[in-house]
């Protein structure tokens, strides 16, 4: 067995070990790389940045723990931006397992900016059946959320008294790990003209680009890279920014593996012939 044949038959666990080291080492060395902000993320940032203080932003948590590494830094960065601009935040979610993640981020960032529950933000909680809910909010939000997640009536919160439907929501930001983003665009965006920004996992993001091109959404934050870009814009280094050097190194390593794998395959095939 020659070198290339041996390389082709390499135990996959050796590759896993190399990948593990390539992830851990840059994190341990705390390498930081410059991050270039892309246009879709810049547009998302600008949309929120241009809102006057007191405007209402609805945030939808449409992911769960499986997508937390990508979407949680994004959510934290957007919340920091909202609270820095004195915007009012309404949190809701269509993924039952994701709502605690949203609540954790909301409580953490609200404490950083001394924001008070009920005055600066509310958490509406979860309701199943998102299509009907998205259409229903266009009529009256209280038909679906008469109370917040703790059962407190919405009208007992000062800023919620004037919020009835999409007309009072300046921007809707959906963090998407599935098809709920499409529903927001098709129900809230197309039917009610709601301004929408979507933050999505890398897997979902390519499907959302057509909405961006058609101007159906104002901005798109894609994957860990998008989260790192937003962190750069709000000037707060978080896990996304720290993870990007690892991401770049690992991409290089994967490309190298693909090239070596192909060379090994072609040389082995030629020798067999």
């Amino acid at each position: 067995m020659n070198f290339w044949q041996r390389l082709g038959a390499l135990d996959r666990r050796i590759i896993y070990t190399v990948v593990g080291l390539a992830v851990a080492l840059p994190l341990l060395l705390k390498i930081i790389m410059p991050i270039r902000v892309s246009e879709p993320v810049l547009n998302a940032y600008k949309t929120i940045d241009e809102l006057p203080a007191g405007s209402v932003v609805m945030i939808s948590i449409d992911y769960d723990a499986a997508s937390e590494p990508e979407l949680q830094p994004m959510l934290i960065a957007v919340l920091r931006h909202c609270f820095k601009k004195d915007l009012k935040v309404i949190l809701t979610g269509h993924w039952a397992l994701g709502l605690p993640l949203g609540e954790m981020a909301l409580n953490k960032v609200a404490a950083e900016y001394n924001k008070k529950y009920g005055v600066d933000y509310v958490n509406l909680g979860y309701r199943p059946g998102y299509s009907a809910l998205m259409v229903g909010i266009g009529r009256e939000i209280r038909d679906f959320f008469a109370t917040d997640y703790r059962g407190v009536p919405l009208d007992s919160f000062p800023f919620m008294r004037t919020v009835h439907n999409y007309n009072q929501i300046a921007v809707l930001v959906g963090f998407e790990a599935g098809a709920t983003g499409d529903a927001w665009v098709q129900f809230a965006g197309a039917r009610f003209g709601q301004k929408i920004i979507l933050g999505a996992t890398g897997v979902v993001a390519p499907d959302l680009y057509p909405y961006l091109q058609a101007r159906q959404i104002c901005g798109l934050i894609s994957g860990l890279q998008g989260a790192a870009e937003y962190e750069t814009l709000v000037k707060s280094i978080g896990t996304a920014t720290l993870g990007m050097p690892t991401q770049s190194i690992l991409h290089g390593l994967i490309i190298l593996f693909i090239i070596i794998g192909n060379i090994s395959y072609f040389i082995t095939r030629r020798r067999k012939k």
């Binding site: 997508s67 990508e70 996992t201 890398g202 860990l224 993870g243 690892t246 991401q247 991409h251």
Partner: peptide, 9 residues
């Protein structure tokens, strides 16, 4: 990219 992000996380 997404899968790597999960591993990084």
């Amino acid at each position: 990219m997404a899968r790597i992000s999960l591993l990084i996380g």
